[in-house]
């Protein structure tokens, strides 16, 4: 089975089993009772310590767009003619900005979105280095 690892440490957890959901890593401030993403060194409100926590893998689409320009770091538009981007509100009160799967007509504010690993490149030993993206949760 292909080994999948995050592009950088400290942003997300990718379980070995593809049956388990990926989760983003955030910070929880007990003093402010707030969650933050990405991880903070300390609480930006209270300046107290924070703990690293795994955030919920499903959220609601707050807003979206469909981009017809090359992705950051690339000079070519995707073969599909573009890609979606979205802001997803997680239940912890954290808003995530991410690439989202789908076509322009698929996106509706308020729809449920699920976090998944987004393979960015494969190393010579076969390891897949992954970022993240969100995909619409299929109803029913």
């Amino acid at each position: 089975m292909t080994k999948r690892v995050p592009l950088e440490e400290g942003y997300m957890v990718i379980p070995e089993s593809s049956d388990e959901p990926c989760r983003l890593l955030g910070s929880y401030s007990k003093a402010a009772d707030k969650h933050y993403f990405p991880i903070r060194k300390r609480c930006p409100i209270t300046e107290k310590d924070v703990e690293t926590v795994e955030l919920s893998p499903v959220g609601e689409l707050y807003s979206w767009s469909f981009i017809r320009m090359p992705k950051m770091g690339s000079r070519k538009v995707d073969s599909g003619g573009g890609y979606g981007v979205g802001q997803i509100d997680l239940p912890e009160g954290v808003r995530i900005q991410s690439v989202i799967d789908g076509e322009q007509e698929d996106f509706k504010i308020g729809m449920k979105m699920q976090l998944v690993a987004n393979p960015m490149y494969t190393a010579e030993d076969g390891t897949q280095y992954c970022g993240f993206k969100f995909v619409p949760v299929k109803e029913g």
């Binding site: 592009l7 807003s63 767009s65 992705k71 950051m72 802001q87 190393a123």
Partner: peptide, 27 residues
């Protein structure tokens, strides 16, 4: 980070500014 391909954007640098403004407009 060690082992990371320099050509690939980091987690914090994957979306274009145009996307952020567009999401504000859609909202």
């Amino acid at each position: 980070a060690p082992g990371v391909d320099r050509r690939v954007p980091s987690f914090e640098n994957t979306l274009l500014p145009a996307g952020f403004f567009a999401m504000w407009a859609v909202r």
